[in-house]
Structure formats: C-alpha cells, structure tokens
C-alpha cells in the first residue's frame, strides 16, 4: 500500500516550555486505520491537530498524499478539504440545523449546488442513522447523535482521510457504541483514519495499528493483537494496566 500521511521529526513546544511533540515520525498508508493512545499530555491530540495544521509545528514536516502541510506556502484550505476532522466536543454549529450544518461547507467551499449538497447530506444522514433528524437543531440532539452529525458533516467534503480527536470522550457510556459503530463502518469501507481514542473495543474491531505515545514521543507501535497481549515496553504495560 502507498504511504498517504508522512510525518517526519515533528516538534512542537507550547508557551516556550511545554514540549508537546519531541520528534515524532509516523507514516500512515492509504486505507489504514491507526489508533493513537497515551496518557493525557502525551502529545497525541497535538500530533493529530498538526495533520490539518490546527497546530503549527515548530519543526519537522508533514506530507499528505505528497503535498506539504507544514510548508508556509501550502494551500492549507485545499488540503483541509480532503482531511475531515471530528472533535471531542462535536463543535456542531448551533445556529444551523442538522442539514445546514452538513451542507454549509460543500456549498460555500466546494461551490456545490444546494440541491446536490442536500441530496448528499441526506445520504450521509442515512449512513449515520439519523435520517429523521434532518431539520433538528444541534441542541435537541443527544451527544451521540451530535457526534454522528459531526461525522456526516466531515464526510460531506468527501475527505480522503479522517482525523478523530477523542470522539467518544465527552459521551455518556450508552452513546459511545452508536458513534463507534459508525466509525467501524467507515474503517471497513477503506477510509484512511487517524484516531486518538482509548476505546479498546474499536481498536480490536477496526484498527490496523496502535501507536502508544508518552511525553511527546512514540514509545511503541504494533498491530492490536500483539499490542494488547504482548507489549514490548514497560511504559506501555503500565499504561495498559490502567485502562484495560
């Protein structure tokens, strides 16, 4: 498989002192589902947010499909069109109803016709199981439903890769599964995914590779079966004891 995302020696310091990333190398192949785990403050979210340049690296480089994200002259808006992102706090637009949340960017950024965008939006809502919520307002939805709309909204841009930043951390336990099911379906369809999450069920069901980060570095990476049963590093073992 060809490499789709190539991160080289990523370094990021916040406020001049806190080192979030201390030289991270990671490559993700097309269609691969990579799960990033690690304690809070390990830099996993920063790494994910660097991929679509919501965070700017201090040094190092990131290529997506051969195009540089980190280059100052990069057409970052064009790159972001192809990189979908799902946030921990959903970030639906509260002043727009569900279908408008989904169709806004396709019409404004991709200049799609309204009808085309709505037709596509309806398909995506069916895909995430929320066809009946088309004209609901975000505040009327449960957290799990909001997150599924957020996934549909990201998919409406027809991205080539999806970034998930702790997508289930803000959810009540009974809503986690409905979101993970959508993500698992997406993984099965061959979407390239980079997921920051501690959901081990999802890891076993859908991930091709687990990355364990600590203190701004990748400590260990392995396929889910070996990662959970026989981690190499002591630090990984200690962390797994806490979350499993």
């Amino acid at each position: 498989m060809e490499t789709y995302i190539e991160i080289k020696n990523a370094v990021k310091t916040f406020n001049g002192s806190i080192q979030a990333l201390r030289g991270v190398d990671l490559s993700v192949k097309k269609g691969e589902v990579v799960l990033i785990i690690g304690p809070s403050g390990s830099g996993k979210s920063t790494l994910l947010r660097s991929v679509n340049r919501l965070e700017r690296l201090d040094s190092g480089s990131i290529l997506i499909d051969g195009e540089s994200v980190t280059d100052e002259k990069a057409d970052i808006r064009h790159i972001r069109e192809e990189v979908g992102m799902v946030f921990q706090s959903f970030n639906l637009f509260p002043h727009l109803n569900v279908i408008d949340n989904i169709t806004l960017s396709p019409t404004v950024v991709l200049k799609k016709g309204k009808e085309e965008a709505v037709a596509q939006g309806r398909k995506l809502l069916a895909k995430v199981g929320l066809s009946d919520k088309e004209i609901a307002w975000p505040e009327q939805l449960s957290g799990g439903q909001q997150q599924r709309v957020a996934i549909a909204r990201a998919l409406a841009m027809s991205p080539k890769v999806m970034l998930f930043d702790e997508p289930t951390s803000a959810l009540d336990p009974e809503m986690i599964k409905e979101v993970l099911d959508v993500m698992t379906d997406l993984a099965r369809e061959g979407m390239t995914m980079l997921v920051v999450s501690h959901e081990m069920g999802f890891a076993r069901a859908a991930a091709h590779r687990i990355i364990f980060m600590d203190a701004g570095q990748i400590v260990e990476e392995a396929p889910p079966e070996t990662f959970f049963t026989s981690p190499r590093e002591e630090r990984t073992r200690r962390f797994l004891e806490h979350i499993l």
């Binding site: 679509n52 919501l54 808006r77 064009h78 972001r80 069109e81 990189v83 979908g84 992102m85 946030f87 706090s89 970030n91 639906l92 637009f93 806004l104 960017s105 404004v108 950024v109 991709l110 957020a150 909204r153 990201a154 841009m157």
Partner: peptide
C-alpha cells in the same frame, strides 16, 4: 468557543 472556528477551518473555510 474556539472549537467553532476550528471546526469551520477544518471544513476548509
């Protein structure tokens, strides 16, 4: 909330 601007930027706006 900052997440609103981030979500919009992430969607290519």
């Amino acid at each position: 909330p900052r997440g609103q601007m981030e979500a919009a930027l992430a969607l290519g706006m």
